[in-house]
């Protein structure tokens, strides 16, 4: 019961943080934000690891494989595609070296 209460507490607090962390965002960032959040729930791969450590039957192995393969596609693909979208976002500003964002912002 104590474990459940601890878990419930962090669940509710994490929900509230999730609401607060995204206040108003420009609509151009909607897609990358969605993609970035999608990558974060790729943490389900950690659950696949736990499943693998407990699996002890053929069904368990199959479920481990499904969880591992699908979660890996989610997490690796999610971060890679988010980075690719955001790289494209930077391009208009990053005609000069990437760390000069402030001066290039003035120029645009």
């Amino acid at each position: 019961m104590q474990i459940l209460f601890g878990n419930l507490a962090i669940f509710v607090l994490a929900l509230l943080v999730g609401v607060e962390v995204i206040s108003k965002i420009p609509s151009t960032l909607h897609t990358p934000m969605m993609s970035g959040a999608n990558a974060i729930h790729g943490v389900v791969i950690a659950g696949a690891v736990v499943t693998a450590s407990l699996a002890n039957s053929p069904t368990g192995y199959i479920l481990t494989f499904i969880a591992g393969a699908f979660a890996a596609a989610n997490v690796f693909g999610g971060y890679a595609v988010t980075d690719r979208i955001l790289k494209m976002f930077m391009r208009p500003k990053a005609v000069e070296p990437a760390d000069e964002t402030k001066t290039s912002k003035d120029a645009s």
Binding site: N7, F11, L15, V43, V50
Partner: peptide, 20 residues
């Protein structure tokens, strides 16, 4: 499976995704 990493990250995405 009593794993806090999944609970926190999942809840975070659940709430942030709803606002989004």
């Amino acid at each position: 499976i009593d794993n806090q990493a999944l609970i926190i990250a999942g809840a975070l995405v659940g709430a942030a995704g709803t606002i989004l």
